[in-house]
Nucleic acid binder design. Structure first.
Lengths: 205, 205
DNA sequence: GTCTATAATTTGATAGAC
DNA sequence: GTCTATCAAATTATAGAC
């Protein structure tokens, strides 16, 4: 399909609008009218470029998931020492998500809304996290006596939890811990160093 | 308003149905028809007992939030040592949420959907978490030289993250870590002890 | 209190002119 | 490709009989 410069511009405007609205309101809460308004066009044109709501959502969701998941693999399967992986993961993942703070909750929520759809159409040979290498690496470090014996799966869950949860719970944390937007960003910036340090202290011999 | 025995029974059936549907599909995804079906009645009767969708949702949401938040305060403000608090929080909170695994994602998502509504109507003098006492307690332990110096706020975020996140990310973790329902429950059961142990190792001198 | 039937509204989607 | 106008379907909400 040939795509003129103007086409691309409009489709890009639509996608930018759809990202904002879908990520904010979710698949079920989003309205095609809102997306059209946000893009500065009308609904008919939306349906011309993307046949229906489901298809448009799919593009946005796959793109969102594609931003969050590959990075995990990339680091966990890299050729690095365990501590380096932990440090790099926190540093790079917090940086990544800070640019799109609402992405994790959006993705987790949509996965939860329709796990089957998620498993099927979405997860086909894509970069679904493969934690085996990291888990094996943790086991090896323990066998070599370089770190304390902790269930590798539990350690991985600790790492993911501490890194991602604050973004998922952001509105609640901001209210309950009394953090304004600026302070929240500072706290998350500190976590880049704080989390690895915390983990290292926890598993040192 | 006088409420007969039969009234209560029907309202309770409706609420039970509304809990399931709202928690599963969210405010925007839930359909009144589904709730009526689930309750074994028709839509008209739904509107008779709860004027509209918003009102019914509000009851369900407030109840859900009321299950998750008071427990936090109850433990954080108790008259216990720091380690005891951490241990009790993990133990009791995991137990609590295991009975309603979808509650945290539901509540966090709805808070995110409409933070203003959440702050306003919902959070009026309710048991919103008051972390000051716990934060002060952490500071005191550090000043006394009994634990390593870690930003209390960061430590609190570690604790909340490790305890709650696995439930929020459950469908994703189950897929990406290859855990079936039974295994997930076992892993969470282990976390009751694993998380406090991990934290204690991390902040010991 | 509970039902059937229907109104009222919202919203996704299409037809057809330009 | 883009718009206006409109349809069709889904969904919330109400009227009125029992």
């Amino acid at each position: 399909m040939v795509t003129s410069a103007k086409d691309k511009s409009t489709e890009e405007k639509i996608l930018a609008a759809a990202r904002r609205v879908f990520v904010r309101d979710g698949m079920t809460g989003a309205r095609m009218q809102d997306i059209a308004d946000e893009a500065g066009i009308n609904k008919a044109l939306l349906h011309y470029h993307f046949r229906n709501k489901k298809k448009l959502f799919e593009v946005v969701f796959l793109e969102a998931a594609g931003r969050l998941f590959p990075k995990i693999n990339e680091i966990f399967e890299a050729d690095l020492g365990l501590f380096e992986k932990i440090e790099r993961f926190c540093e790079e993942y917090v940086t990544l998500v800070m640019e799109n703070p609402y992405l994790p909750l959006f993705v987790l929520n949509e996965i939860n809304r329709d796990p089957h759809y998620f498993l099927g159409k979405v997860w086909k040979g894509k970069s679904t996290p493969r934690p085996e290498k990291l888990l094996a690496q943790i086991k090896a470090e323990q066998a070599a006596g370089r770190i304390r014996s902790v269930d590798p799966l539990q350690l991985l869950m600790h790492l993911l939890s501490m890194t991602i949860f604050p973004f998922v719970a952001r509105p609640m944390l901001r209210k309950n811990l009394g953090l304004d937007e600026q302070t929240f960003r500072v706290v998350m910036e500190q976590r880049k160093k704080e989390i690895p340090e915390f983990i290292i202290h926890a598993i040192r011999i």
